[in-house]
C-alpha cells in the first residue's frame, strides 16, 4: 500500500492548518446566522444597562475609586472573554456532536486541541464588535478611560483572554466526558462572574470568598485590566496581577492539557462520544 499522505502536513503545520481552518469555518457558520449577528452586540449592552440600573438604585456611583460605568464596561469585557473562550472551548466538541461531525473530526489526524482552540479564537473574533459597542456605550454613560499606557492595556487584555482560554481548556475535557458541556458552562457562569469580580468588586467579599477567587486567573487579569484602562497604570503597576494570573492560568492549562491528552483514549474506550 502506498503512503499517499506523505505530502500532507504533520505536527505543528498540520495543527496550524486545523486551527485557522476551524476559525474560518466557524466565522462562516456564524455569518450565516442572522440571529447571532444581531444578538451578539446587543447582549453586552443589555447587561451593561441592567447593572447600571442596579448600581443607580443602590446609590453607588464609584467602585474602587472608578466610575461605575468604567468598572462595568471592563466587567462586560471579561464576560465576553469568558463566553467567547469558555463556551467556545467547552462546547466546541459538543457542537461537533450536534452537527454529527464529531466522528469525522476525531478520526482526522489533526489534534482535537487545535479544533478547540480554533473554536475559542473564532468566538473571540466574533465578540470583537460587542466589545467595541460596550466601550462606546460606557463612554456615553459617563465612563472615563485612561489610555496613557496602551502596551499595558494590550497586555492586560491579552491576559484576560489567555486566562479564559486556560480555564476553558481545563473544562473542555470535563465537558466532553460528561457529555453535557452546556449544563456545566451554565452552572459555572454565575460563580465565575461573581468570583472574578466582573460586576462586583472583590474587595467587598468576605475573606474566605476572596481566597477562593484568588485561584481564578480571570480575577487577577480583570483587576490588571481595570488598573490600566481606568487608572492608567503602567506595566510595572500590574506586574503582581499578571504574575498571579500567569500562575493560576498555568495550573488550569496543565489540567486541561492532561485531560485532553486522555480524552481521545477515554472516548475510544467508552465509545459513547457520538451517541448524544
Amino acid at each position: 500500500m502506498q503512503p499517499v499522505l506523505l505530502a500532507n502536513r504533520h505536527g505543528l503545520a498540520l495543527n496550524w492548518g486545523v486551527f485557522h481552518g476551524t476559525i474560518r469555518a466557524m466565522m462562516l457558520r456564524w455569518a450565516s446566522n442572522t440571529i447571532q449577528l444581531v444578538r451578539g452586540p446587543i447582549y453586552p449592552l443589555l447587561a451593561l444597562i441592567t447593572y447600571r440600573i442596579i448600581y443607580d438604585i443602590s446609590g453607588q456611583t464609584t467602585i474602587d475609586q472608578s466610575h461605575v460605568m468604567g468598572f462595568l464596561v471592563t466587567g462586560i469585557l471579561a464576560t465576553q472573554a469568558w463566553q467567547a473562550t469558555v463556551w467556545g472551548a467547552g462546547s466546541a466538541l459538543q457542537n461537533e456532536m450536534w452537527s454529527g461531525t464529531i466522528g469525522s473530526v476525531l478520526m482526522a489526524p489533526g489534534s482535537s486541541t487545535a479544533v478547540i482552540l480554533g473554536h475559542t479564537f473564532g468566538n473571540f473574533l466574533m465578540s470583537a464588535p460587542s466589545l467595541l459597542i460596550a466601550f462606546i456605550a460606557g463612554q456615553l454613560f459617563g465612563a472615563t478611560y485612561d489610555f496613557s499606557h496602551p502596551l499595558a492595556i494590550v497586555v492586560a487584555l491579552a491576559t484576560v483572554y489567555l486566562s479564559c482560554v486556560c480555564v476553558g481548556l481545563c473544562f473542555s475535557g470535563l465537558f466532553i466526558l460528561s457529555r453535557n458541556a452546556n449544563a456545566f458552562a451554565n452552572f459555572l457562569q454565575e460563580p465565575i462572574h461573581l468570583l472574578g469580580g466582573f460586576f462586583i468588586s472583590r474587595t467587598l467579599f468576605p475573606d474566605w470568598i476572596q481566597r477562593i477567587s484568588d485561584i481564578i486567573p480571570l480575577a487577577h487579569a480583570v483587576e490588571a485590566l481595570r488598573k490600566t484602562v481606568l487608572e492608567g497604570a503602567p506595566l510595572s503597576g500590574i506586574s503582581r496581577d499578571l504574575l498571579a494570573a500567569a500562575i493560576t492560568s498555568s495550573i488550569f492549562a496543565v489540567i486541561g492539557a492532561w485531560s485532553l491528552a486522555r480524552l481521545d483514549r477515554a472516548v475510544r474506550r467508552t465509545g459513547t462520544l457520538d451517541l448524544l
Partner: peptide
C-alpha cells in the same frame, strides 16, 4: 475514509465546497 450513515455529519450552514475545505484542513492538506 469513513462515511457514517444518516443525515448528519456535514455542516449545514456551510456550502458543500466549504465543508470539503474544512475537512481537507483536518487532514493536513495544503
Amino acid at each position: 475514509g469513513v462515511l457514517f450513515g444518516g443525515d448528519r455529519g456535514l455542516y449545514n450552514q456551510l456550502s458543500g465546497r466549504e465543508n470539503l475545505r474544512y475537512f481537507g484542513r483536518l487532514y493536513g492538506m495544503d
